[in-house]
Design a protein around this nucleic acid. Sequence first.
DNA 1: CTGAAAGCGCTTACAG
DNA 2: CTGAAAGCGCTTACAG
Lengths: 329, 329
Amino acid sequence: MSSIKEVAKQAGVSVATVSRVLNNDPVVKPATKNKVLQVIKEMNYKPNMLAKNLRKQASQTIVMVLPSMSNPYFSEIARGAQAAAYDNAYHIIIGTIESKRWILDTYINLLKTNLAEGIVFVSSSASKELLEELSDEYKIVLCTEHYPGIDSTCVTIDNKKAGYEATNELIRRGHTRIAYITGNRETSSVTARIEGYKAALKEAGIPFRPERIAGAKNSFEHVKETVNGIVDKGMNIDGIITHSDLQASFILKGIKEKSIAVSERIGLVSFDGTFLAEITNPTVTTIVQPLYELGYTSVRILIQKLQSDTDAKEEGLVILPHQLVIRET
Amino acid sequence: MSSIKEVAKQAGVSVATVSRVLNNDPVVKPATKNKVLQVIKEMNYKPNMLAKNLRKQASQTIVMVLPSMSNPYFSEIARGAQAAAYDNAYHIIIGTIESKRWILDTYINLLKTNLAEGIVFVSSSASKELLEELSDEYKIVLCTEHYPGIDSTCVTIDNKKAGYEATNELIRRGHTRIAYITGNRETSSVTARIEGYKAALKEAGIPFRPERIAGAKNSFEHVKETVNGIVDKGMNIDGIITHSDLQASFILKGIKEKSIAVSERIGLVSFDGTFLAEITNPTVTTIVQPLYELGYTSVRILIQKLQSDTDAKEEGLVILPHQLVIRET
DNA sequence: CTGAAAGCGCTTACAG
DNA sequence: CTGAAAGCGCTTACAG
């Protein structure tokens, strides 16, 4: 592996000059530049980015942390994130933490040891406490979930409106006893969607019953128990809204194998709009989130912050449009 | 951000000593070590890895290149890869190339500019030519697909045996007119699986008809056209083996909406064993590949190669066990 | 327009 | 057991 020194010697110039042509400094004389360029090509020289990074105190790298990768929901966000990093000539390290704090810590350490310049947390992959600790020192963007009191930019959809639309769609079809399966924890999106749900019920004059709301993880067993739990409480339900396509697919599976005690003719609307909602039988009516764009925009904004090194922590929600897509359920 | 110099001054030792403590050099006197450790803690010092990397000429980083991320097949491999990197204290950059050569090139450049030490190519994410070019200079591991004549280690399953078992399962159930939907290109796994398919047919005395074999991309339209194409050739089929769960899910979708002209009672066996095969209706009989382990093992072997800097290019196939799981199709 | 030199923050062979 | 010093491969302010 040849170094800048060898290129300089071969071209008969100083390393400073080689460095200047490498960085397209317009000050170098065209003839010199061409000579250097030719030698670089001949020697097949590639600059050592380890040295450049140290010198410039910048790694041109960001990290995106995801809760998991088994849900296509996250894959799509990651895909958009990669594209944005690529478009801005940044490297991106995508990490899935699988609910393990020590894995999260290795990614945080990338920031602390100068290997990464900024981070985007997808979904609720970081606790409020962690965000508070980090937000003074590092550039952070949140993707899909935010926390009240944390002034990092968050890229998400209008969850309240989406919750309203999902509920309204079921009401429009004549469903009145609508259960709501939320995500595992009470995140900002859960709260907002429930608000929309309540608003739609109220508007239709349907009484709100808190027993119809329950949270479930993205596993078949959890979803099954949760839905059956609602039914067991004496709640006779004729519609379900889920927090994710994955949950909806599990419900369909449970209905089919009769381990979930609801009718096949139940109304079902999910959130996300991954391809999962299209390969189930029946296909699922869903709130399509602009997942690729959520990932893309999060990274784009993070890099913008990095490049304009103003410390202005513009709090801010960036709202991307969603869409209700009606399918068979 | 405090540097090693400040720690040294504060602790009343040289930077050399601080460095030794940082690297657990047993030579430093316990008293000195404790003093330094205490100062490090007080100052909340974190070493600058950019400097360490340059000094040691090592980034402790590898890259894994995947064709895409929209198939859970790849997500699972990526998950295993991340775990292996974590367990060996390496960083891993996972990149999806989406069939775009220029994206691939950015990941290759990570190697060439010293930002990454090695690479694992998943599926056929690199051409044979590229592998030939890179294999002299860099440490490479292939995951799931290999090329004859390329002496990089490949971690995969026994595709011939798996193809045999898939075919045999359908024959056992009385199917004799079995179509084979392969992957898009003629990769090593495709070739091997077809060998197994032929072997099973031969053993059962069923004539082999090449018109029953055709390739398809992982998209609904492609799969639909491919299956219909086989039928249009006058091939009356009563069984299908697919290259992926995703293809199988598309076939079920097509059968249901009657855009694919085969009977609902067709025998269907897929490859992969992702959760997709469980959320379709009916659920799909599948060859379960140890995806997490494929990813994990590929990375583990790459790091081993990196650490034992022998140039011995041990060609070699590492075969992991698969399993036929019988479900509803 | 170009070069000599300092320096980014570490590690390590060498001397003591 | 510890420190002074060289050096990893770049960039850039400064001088000319």
